[in-house]
Design a protein around this nucleic acid. Structure first.
Length: 111
DNA sequence: GCAGTGACTAGTA
DNA sequence: ATACTAGCCACTG
């Protein structure tokens, strides 16, 4: 089997996300073979090794919003980078379903 | 090994 | 709609 670390598996999935598309932490974890590891995905992104190009900005939470609450302005950076790739935000600051690469389920709880 | 922490999620109030 | 709680699991000290 692959002796790669969890993070490496997450990175692979994230790198497979095409431009203009996004994915949730939970989806990435499941696709990596570790369902329920959503938190670790976020943790992994925070530990991204230098010199590696990983589109961390294409990773969002299950609400279709940016989860980063850091004051470093990373949340703003993520939004800008997404917009540059063609990702749009609605009035609720949320990304439409059509933008999700993988989305098996979704509650119709939106407006 | 234990306690605290966290870029999460789903459920409940 | 928001606020809080519990479950989740790896990393750090």
């Amino acid at each position: 089997m692959k002796s790669k670390s969890l993070y490496a598996s997450f990175y692979e999935i994230i790198q497979k996300i095409p431009e203009g598309k996004v994915a949730t932490y939970g989806q990435i974890a499941s696709l990596a073979g570790y369902p329920g590891y959503a938190r670790q995905v976020g943790y992994a992104l925070n530990s991204i090794p230098e010199g590696v190009d990983i589109p961390w900005h294409r990773v969002i939470n299950a609400r279709g919003m940016i989860s980063i609450k850091k004051g470093g302005g990373f949340d703003d950076i993520q939004r800008l980078m997404l917009e540059e790739e063609g990702v749009i935000f609605d009035s609720n600051n949320r990304i439409p379903l059509s933008t999700f690469q993988w989305l098996p389920m979704y509650d119709s709880h939106d407006e």
